[in-house]
């Protein structure tokens, strides 16, 4: 148990989420997201405030740490953790919006400030949706 805990503490310097590594309040970073839907023909359609085809990002996500990212907001547990969560959230969103029959994948442009330094930009996207099956 002692060795496992020491291992988890050491792993916290590699793991963006610091699981069981106990590094609270590790950053004061902020981030904002611009979400677009990419259609099969390559057209990029903005999803202002995370709303499209009757879906609402904030409502579906249901988790305060990732809600309302359209304005600059605090990065819960640090930027790396948030980007990793956003990456998975895009996949989850792609799988849980069956009434959207036109989007091939979702793409998020994340603009962040790490401890007030920046801006830095990274782009993440969901997996391709199988439109024929929807």
């Amino acid at each position: 148990m002692v060795i496992v805990q020491l291992g988890l503490v050491a792993n916290g310097y590699r793991d963006p989420h610091n699981y069981f590594a106990f590094q609270p309040f590790n950053e004061s970073s902020t981030y904002a997201v611009e979400l677009v839907r990419v259609l099969p023909d390559g057209e990029r359609v903005a999803a202002p405030y995370g709303r499209w085809e009757g879906y609402d990002w904030d409502e579906l996500i249901g988790w305060r740490a990732l809600q309302g990212p359209w304005r600059q907001r605090h990065a819960f547990s640090g930027v790396d953790a948030v980007v990793d969560f956003l990456d998975h959230a895009l996949d989850w969103m792609a799988d849980n919006t069956p009434d959207d029959t036109t989007t091939l994948y979702l793409e998020a442009t994340v603009t962040y400030y790490r401890n007030a330094r920046g801006p830095h930009v990274t782009v993440i996207r969901s997996h391709d949706r199988e439109l024929g099956r929807l």
Binding site: L6, V9, Y13, F22, Q23, P24, F25, N26, S28, N115
Partner: peptide
Amino acid sequence: FEAAAIYFASGFSKLIDPDWVGGRVMHDR
């Protein structure tokens, strides 16, 4: 051991982070 490890892990991670120990993180927050 766990309780002490938590204080240590939290303190040490901040000690080796120049942004934290230098006041940048707290100031920005």
